[in-house]
Amino acid sequence: MTTEQTAGDQPLRPSLWRRILDSDLLYSFLRKPVVIVSFVLTVIIVLAAVLAPWIAPHTPFDPASLNLMNGFTPPFSANEFTGDTFILGTDSQGRDVFSAILYGARISLLVGFSAVAFAMILGVGLGLLAGYKGGWVDSLIMRVADVQLSFPAILVALMIFGVMRGVIPPQQQDQMAIYVLILAIGLSDWVQYARTVRSSTMAEKNKEYVQAARLFSVPAHRILLKHILPNVTGPILVIATIGLALAIILESTLSFLGVGVPATQPSLGTLIRIGQDYLFSGEWWITIFPGLTLLVLALSVNLLGDWLRDALNPKLR
């Protein structure tokens, strides 16, 4: 979003850096320790996930690097046979739990971000269209949204997943699983964007600047994207942040239910599902550490979203 703004800069406007330093958002951010902690935790997890191939001590899903003798090593202690140590222990096949979490968070975040992007593009697009066009286009889009909103996201995602599973031939299912998951989560979450953008668009389209643009016969798509869209970005950002937390939770839930990503590319939810079987025999670390990572990630992103909603809402200041 920053490049967009600098591109259209006029000489008189202060530099981007100056504007960030002077912004109310930064002021509010620096006065909320909880928000700073959430932000730092989110950044750490995202960086660790992105850099997983370079910082993970092991490559957990390369069978050649695994040693079965290392199986079930408890955290913080050396394996009794091989003497290897693993920070967070190993699972049944001697995989390093810490590395598995890094790679798992990578999948979780990849699916989460992609699903949010997909839902955002779809929802914003349909919302702009519905708000600007009105009439039967508007009623059709909003009726679909109403119906979808009366079912919980998990059910919609499961339904889409079930349908897709039927459409895709079985031999390709594992490769396609991530895309299907992104599609299912994205489709279950577009309504929020559409509703918000639609109501803002309806308010904006009657203002003078839009009328002026129309008078210059600027094409409709240009009015929507260049004139109206920049004025509705605040709410979109808030929904996207909270949506990211929801998408991550939804992805992990689906993977936990065994209908998400395949076991060869485990996300945090898959790791928790695999680890659950060993909970009863006392190997708690296999499931608890991925669970904690998921909790910290979801909680931090949620808190950031809450703060953003309050900070961008002038009524609450």
Binding site: A245, T253, I272, L279, G291, L294, L295, A298, L299
Partner: peptide, 18 residues
């Protein structure tokens, strides 16, 4: 309660079982 909202249902179940 804020933590409770962020905690996925299945994780609550697993923690309770543990």
């Amino acid at each position: 309660s804020l933590i409770g909202v962020s905690l996925p249902t299945f994780l609550i179940g697993i923690l309770l079982i543990y």
